[in-house]
Simulated assay, not measured.
Amino acid sequence: MTNTTDTPTGAPRAVLADDERLMRDQLRARLAEAWPELQIVAEAKNGAEAVELVEQHRPDVVFLDIRMPGMTGVDAAKQIAQMDVGDDGVLPEIVFITAYDQYAVEAFEQGATDYILKPAERDRLKLTVERIGKRLAAKRGAGDGDADAPAAPGGEPIQQLLHKLAASGGARPAYLKWIQATVGQAIQMIPVEDVLFFISDEKYTRVQTPQVEALIRKPIKELVDELDPERFWQIHRSTLVAVNAIAAVTRDFRGRQIVSVKGNPQKLEVSRSYTHLFKGM
């Protein structure tokens, strides 16, 4: 959790929340281009920190990653929407940072929130900045308006929108499409569709593609929830393999099932808990 001070008087202020440092860095840089006067007063790594920082700083805008450990972005937004209004009598604007599918994006379009798709694209971010700028200007002009229930153009309060998103399934995260991984001294964005398998040790998870071997800090137990189970099978507590990368499954001299991977010499052991995946072997 980080705090920034010395913001110019009258400048719009924001709290940014995302558990991935690379995404925070990228969004901060893109916001500096699209909205130079915006001041990032604090950054959070999870939803609970975001709620605390919003309570502390009373920003004009909150950028919330949907998928964060512990408290999700939607849950954090619910708590923020229920806060007592600050001295200016208004709640902050909510902008979700999301990898959602089009269904959920359409829901955001109809509500009192806005959204940024990961990774943040300049053109889409510019549109978000224009929308939020207009809303902030309208709030200043409204003065004594109904600040307790900020509404979308269609009149739907944000609390109702967030309830609908959670209840309808719109709050379910889309499966990962990109992996941010360390390759040598650089951080690369690796398409999930290129990954052959993931193997974890105590500190890191190895990401293997046909061309690249990379490392991430995300454990297998988190990846299991974030990857499409029809595309990636867990075959060991420390191993996930892409189904379409499985070349063959054989047994070694001890009777253990061993997965051979297309285009890679690695042999992956199937633990007893997952042998049912390969019935008849």
Rank of each mutant, 00 (worst) to 15 (best):
Q159L: 06
Q56G: 05
I190M: 02
R254H: 06
G73S: 05
I187M: 13
K118D: 05
Q110V: 05
F108Q: 11
E222T: 11
V195S: 03
E93Y: 06
A137H: 11
A149D: 12
A149I: 08
R28Y: 07
R231K: 09
T5L: 12
D25W: 09
H276S: 11
K221T: 15
I246N: 03
M68W: 14
G89S: 00
V61P: 03
Q102I: 07
Q110S: 06
L38W: 07
M1R: 10
A214D: 01
L176V: 06
K279M: 10
G10H: 14
G10Q: 15
I66A: 07
V249Y: 02
K203E: 11
R206P: 02
D84Q: 14
A181Q: 09
V212R: 05
A186F: 07
A104Q: 00
R24M: 08
Y100V: 02
D87H: 06
R140M: 09
F63P: 05
T72F: 05
T9F: 03
R13T: 13
E222W: 03
D19M: 09
V74I: 15
P229A: 09
L22R: 10
R217A: 12
E130D: 15
G155W: 07
L27E: 04
S200E: 11
A214T: 01
W35M: 01
W178D: 07
E121W: 01
V74F: 15
L227G: 02
R58E: 04
F197E: 07
K203P: 01
D101F: 07
A76I: 06
N244W: 13
F96A: 01
L53H: 06
L161C: 04
R251F: 01
M23K: 13
F253E: 14
E20I: 14
P229T: 12
R67S: 10
L27P: 09
A142G: 11
T250M: 10
K267T: 15
T98D: 01
R131Q: 12
R140V: 10
R140Q: 13
M71L: 14
R58G: 02
I80R: 01
I220F: 11
K218G: 01
S260G: 10
T72H: 04
I97A: 03
N264L: 06
D144P: 08
R237C: 12
K139Q: 15
L38K: 10
R122Y: 07
D225L: 11
D88P: 03
A99L: 00
L176A: 14
A77Y: 08
A120N: 05
E43L: 10
A99K: 00
G86V: 00
I220D: 08
Y100D: 08
D6H: 13
F96E: 00
M23H: 12
A44R: 04
S238Q: 05
A248Y: 06
F96V: 03
V212M: 02
Y115R: 02
K221E: 13
Q160H: 01
G73Y: 03
A242R: 15
L64A: 07
Y204T: 12
L277C: 01
K279A: 15
N46H: 11
T205A: 04
R206F: 08
A34T: 09
M1L: 06
